[in-house]
């Protein structure tokens, strides 16, 4: 049967296109315009050429923030993805407890970012926080406002608490869609638990896992609210990630030109990583024959 080709369907995406134009394309163009000019406010601009890009590329501050950002994203991915899959593998498959688990797992996902930040900010405080007070009472020198490691560990544990459920839920959905026949075949072959995971479950959940990795990478790479609320980028600059540094530069110092150049480079990195993930995902789908 021949499929009818109807290009009129393209008009249906027109509203989205308009929305994206106003919410993304026009602001992005403005940022590009800002990045080649200097301003002292009052909407007066002076041509600066590629000066800000040059300045940003040579800026230790930006490279440091980028390094911290990559480290943060790498650490939380290395924890959340295996942990999420492990939790999904151990969740009940059906019945009352499956529902209980699903509800409990989705609770952290429903909490707004700034509330998550506030919860952990208070939880970790040395004077009144349950975690901070208890650790110090046990003799552990824990103070996220003064200690580099304490600040990083707090942010990482907070992010793991907040987002591992997302990975677990996605992996759980992937596992649920595997037909029983695969497990029966594995049983006939007397496959070990590890082999079942390696050759049946992992390949089958690879697609959703890639989505989970992409989502977690994107979110962690542009993280702002939680570290801003908990540590404010400190102690010193030790938790000043890219977004925090960018906001400090653009709004705190009103250096619109350098901040715009910074944003464009930040955006390019995200674009590359997203494109790579997207390509890998679509190619996985094609290989599976979807």
């Amino acid at each position: 049967m021949n499929k009818t080709v109807n290009q009129k369907a393209w008009f249906l995406i027109l509203p989205v296109l308009l929305l994206v134009a106003f919410s993304a394309v026009i602001p992005l163009m403005t940022v590009v315009n800002y990045s080649v000019q200097d301003t002292f406010g009052n909407n007066q601009f002076f041509w600066a050429g590629l000066e800000w890009f040059e300045q940003m590329l040579a800026s230790e501050r930006m490279w440091d923030a980028l390094g911290r950002q990559i480290a943060f994203s790498a650490i939380i991915l290395a924890i959340q993805i295996p942990l999420g899959v492990f939790i999904a593998l151990n969740m009940p498959k059906k019945g009352f407890w499956a529902s209980v688990c699903l509800v409990l797992m989705s609770l952290p996902l429903l909490i707004p970012w700034n509330v998550v930040g506030t919860i952990w900010q208070i939880f970790g405080r040395v004077d009144i926080g349950l975690l901070g007070y208890t650790l110090n009472a046990m003799g552990v020198d824990y103070n996220y406002t003064q200690n580099f490691y304490a600040a990083w560990i707090t942010l990482i544990v907070m992010d793991v608490w907040h987002w591992t459920s997302l990975v677990a839920l996605l992996a759980y959905a992937g596992l649920q869609s595997i037909p029983d026949a695969y497990y029966q075949a594995a049983k006939i072959d007397q496959a070990s638990r590890w082999k079942v995971f390696r050759f049946i479950e992992l390949p089958k959940i690879m697609g959703v896992l890639m989505i989970a990795i992409l989502l977690r990478f994107m979110d962690s790479f542009m993280i702002y609210t939680e570290p801003f609320v908990v540590t404010g980028g400190g102690p010193g600059n030790s938790t000043t990630f890219l977004s925090i540094d960018l906001v400090k530069m653009a709004l705190g110092q009103f250096d619109l030109g350098p901040a715009a150049a910074f944003s464009i480079m930040y955006y390019l990195v995200i674009l590359v990583v997203s494109y790579v993930f997207y390509t890998v995902m679509t190619n996985l789908d094609k290989r599976d024959g979807h």
């Binding site: 026009i26 163009m29 403005t30 590009v32 315009n33 080649v36 000019q37 301003t39 909407n43 601009f45």
Partner: peptide
């Protein structure tokens, strides 16, 4: 359009 702070080089680039 003035708020977007257009310049000739960036306009040419986007064009």
């Amino acid at each position: 359009m003035e708020w977007m702070a257009w310049t000739w080089p960036t306009a040419t680039f986007f064009a």
